[in-house]
Design a protein around this nucleic acid. Structure first.
Length: 359
DNA sequence: CCCATTTGACCATT
DNA sequence: AATGGTCAAATGGG
């Protein structure tokens, strides 16, 4: 991206990470239950840090990325930023079976940020599935998964074609706990910034009360936002790929991040990045999650951050995987941070470049 | 009639 | 060959 140097990038990442860690520690001291307001707030804060870090990573701070021929096999399944370092969570470990497919995407399409959320719905609400997450999704498939009681549903952004938004998600109900849903998100929404279409804003100022933002444009499961907050419980997915012993890598021992991506040789990347990525992300992450009270001005496709814990996966270079996943190896959260530099996978979302959809 | 979902077929990967 | 992911025709609801 446009950081002055990679050092700026590292500094930024470091600051963000420290903030995140401190929030985690605060959480440890405070946490008495999922439903506590302070806990929800902390979840939001952590979520914001995660997003910020992931954006930085995906934008490949200071570098424009490099064609990383993925030579560093290491066999590590994947990397993640885990919100909470609790590798002892057996339940979470048992649910790792479908993680392999996360990497498959990278071969079909450019690698995309991938993360999972676990969302619990309360049975008394009779919900069929997790409620609205603020985006507008369109279901495009359902599949029975081997060894899973419940089928997996596939969703893509409603505005996939209109706005070239390639975000998708998969929803899988947990075998053990039918009230628990695992939602795997792939790709980030770009529909709200509209590289080609400007988003209608504030159609009715009277409705800018933040509660409304949850139910934008979604016919799936209308629900009262307050109940969403109360009923959702975010469970942590710790994704360490612990089948392998991994070295603890100091946050500052990154590999040099001055690469060039394959594509960057074809296009002037900086322009694209500026236009699309910055524009894409900034509205989503400016403040809502942390402030907790300004959800207004959300586009139909805007993310409502409900404070669920998200677990980010970087499904790209194996480099990432070597550096990451130290959280499981230590109790010190600081040492467990994922500082990896992901190969930059900026999807150059040319508004005009849509030849390949749909044969 | 329009649009989202359903669902079997098809494709890619392992 | 088995499995997971996506497509797209059929279906159904508003």
């Amino acid at each position: 991206m446009e950081y002055g140097s990679s050092w700026d990038y590292y500094t930024l990442v470091n600051e963000l990470t420290q903030g995140m860690e401190q929030a985690k520690q605060l959480r440890v001291h405070l946490s008495s239950g999922y439903m506590e307001p302070q806990d929800l707030l902390l979840q939001r804060i952590l979520s914001s840090y995660e997003k910020a870090l992931s954006i930085l990573k995906w934008n490949g701070g200071g570098s424009v990325g490099q064609s990383q021929p993925t030579p560093l096999a290491s066999g590590a399944p994947e990397s993640s930023i885990s919100v909470e370092g609790s590798p002892q969570n057996e339940e979470a470990k048992n649910n790792f079976n479908d993680y392999q497919d996360l990497r498959d995407v990278s071969k079909k399409r450019k690698t995309q940020p991938t993360w999972t959320e676990q969302v619990r719905v309360s049975p008394e609400n009779g919900l069929e599935g997790p409620a609205d997450d603020g985006y507008s999704w369109r279901k495009y498939g359902q599949k029975d998964i081997l060894g899973a009681k419940y089928p997996r549903s596939y969703y893509r952004c409603t505005y996939r074609h209109m706005r070239n938004c390639w975000a998708t998600k998969q929803v899988q109900r947990s075998d053990d706990d039918p009230t628990l849903f695992e939602i795997t998100y792939k790709g980030t929404h770009v529909c709200n910034t509209g590289t080609s279409i400007s988003v209608p804003q504030h159609p009715s100022p009277a409705k800018q009360e933040f509660k409304h933002s949850y139910n934008h444009n979604n016919h799936q499961q209308p629900q009262q936002p307050n109940q969403i907050l109360m009923n959702f419980r975010a469970n942590l997915r710790v994704n360490t790929g612990d089948s392998e012993a991994k070295e603890i890598v100091s946050p500052f021992s990154f590999p040099s991040a001055t690469h060039m991506d394959d594509e960057s040789q074809l296009f002037p990347m900086s322009a694209l990045v500026d236009e699309n990525i910055l524009g894409t992300y900034s509205p989503s992450f400016v403040s809502p999650a942390t402030s907790g009270s300004n959800y207004f001005s959300m586009s139909p496709c805007h993310m409502a951050n409900l404070g669920r814990i998200k677990n980010l996966h970087s499904s790209e270079s194996d480099l990432t995987e070597i550096i990451s996943a130290t959280a499981s190896a230590t109790n010190s959260p600081i040492a467990g941070l994922d500082f990896s530099i992901d190969s930059v996978e900026l999807d150059p979302n040319f508004p005009f470049n849509a030849p390949g959809f749909f044969t």
